[in-house]
């Protein structure tokens, strides 16, 4: 994997019923050194020019194709501002006062609006919490995807429609042709988020930022969207930045976690390290709070699997490993608590 996606978009996203693992994509565990850095954020600081104070005090991370990083923190921690800085859409009075961001090797520091327009959607893309507010309510959703395809990839009318329907199928909408001709008000929150993801990946970006993309959804729908993102990551090598206030959401999807608090990165490391050997008080608090009212304490222990249901037409009850199963080399395991 060289950091570029296959040229023919049709190879990139395969409709659900014909999913074949593509060889063109190297999974994240192929060794980070093999691939170029697709997103590099180096000591980014964000300053509020009106109140003259710094609100994000230095964020750094690097992502290679197919990797996923999670940014966790409560509201006001600076996680969304960091994403907005990466996307070049900071509110007017906020500026990146120090540090640099490189997207696919390109420094975003001096980009013009026009250069930004070229970069967005085709290299880096994003989905946010409320999908309805990013879609036009008076235009059917399909044409909103074809618009991206025609503007970014220069596809013709018919090809764009065909491709849009493929994309709707790729995000696992059940009846893509029907959805293509529907309006925003006719679709549920989960369906809209899928449409938005389809739009976001339409121009084959390398990086997708998902900022609280599942926060407003029901838990089963949230899992569907998270599964979809994991699936896209595997199938097309999409690089993910997952922003959430929920450590568990991020843990489910990401190899690496960055914990932010009041504009500061308080912890940054492989997910397992952060979950099992948190070094910062705040991370410990997040974990404790989750354990207090999450399902972990009920699911742990042998009884969880011993009393599985008896329905023969169903797979067995989920097996809940005592430790996370991650696609990573075993030598990085820190289960002994060496750290």
């Amino acid at each position: 994997m060289t950091g570029t996606l296959p040229d023919n978009p049709a190879d990139v996203v395969v409709p659900t019923d014909t999913v074949v693992p593509t060889n063109s994509v190297v999974p994240a565990d192929a060794g980070p050194a093999a691939a170029a850095v697709v997103l590099a954020v180096r000591d980014v600081r964000i300053r509020d020019e009106v109140n003259d104070r710094e609100i994000v005090h230095g964020v750094s991370f690097e992502l290679r194709p197919g990797q996923a990083i999670g940014i966790v923190g409560e509201s006001g921690s600076g996680k969304t501002l960091t994403c907005r800085a990466v996307l070049g859409i900071l509110p007017d009075h906020l500026v990146v006062s120090a540090g640099s961001v490189q997207i696919a090797g390109r420094d975003i520091g001096g980009l013009t609006e026009r250069e930004w327009t070229d970069l967005r959607a085709s290299t880096i893309s994003a989905v946010f919490q409320d999908p309805a507010s990013y879609l036009n309510p008076s235009i059917k959703v399909g044409p909103q995807i074809t618009e991206v395809l025609r503007a970014k990839l220069g596809l013709g009318r018919r090809a764009a429609r065909h491709r849009a329907i493929e994309l709707l199928a790729a995000v696992r909408l059940r009846d893509p042709e029907l959805v293509y001709d529907q309006y925003v008000f006719e679709l549920s929150g989960g369906m809209l988020q899928r449409v938005l993801i389809a739009t976001a990946i339409a121009a084959d970006p390398q990086v997708l930022i998902a900022d609280e993309a599942t926060t407003a959804l029901d838990v089963t729908v949230q899992a569907e969207i998270l599964d979809l993102l994991a699936d896209l990551r595997e199938r097309i090598g999409l690089t993910l930045v997952v922003v959430s206030h929920d450590l568990a959401v991020v843990a489910q999807l990401c190899d690496e976690v960055l914990v932010m608090r009041q504009g500061e990165v308080v912890e940054h490391g492989p997910t397992e390290d952060v979950l099992y050997h948190p070094r910062h008080e705040y991370t410990r608090l997040l974990i404790t709070e989750h354990e207090q009212y999450g399902l972990e304490r009920y699911l742990d222990g042998p009884a969880a699997t011993a009393v599985a249901g008896e329905s023969p037409d169903l797979p067995d009850s989920p097996e809940w490993p005592a430790l996370p199963v991650r696609r990573k080399s075993p030598d990085r395991k820190v289960l002994d608590g060496v750290r």
Binding site: V219, T220, Q222, A223, E224, L226, D227, A230, D246, L247, A248, V249, A251, Q252, L275, I287, H290, E291, G294, L295, E296, Y298, L299, A303, A304, V307, A308, G309, S311, L314, P315, S317, P318, E319, W320, P321, A322, L323, P324, V325, R326, R327
Partner: peptide, 29 residues
Amino acid sequence: IKAPGHPYTRLLVGSAPTLRSASASRAER
């Protein structure tokens, strides 16, 4: 939680984000 019987309950329990990887149950979901 521990022994959900109905498929919907199983999906609900299997969908709850926990502080461990849920990738093992993706196929099941």
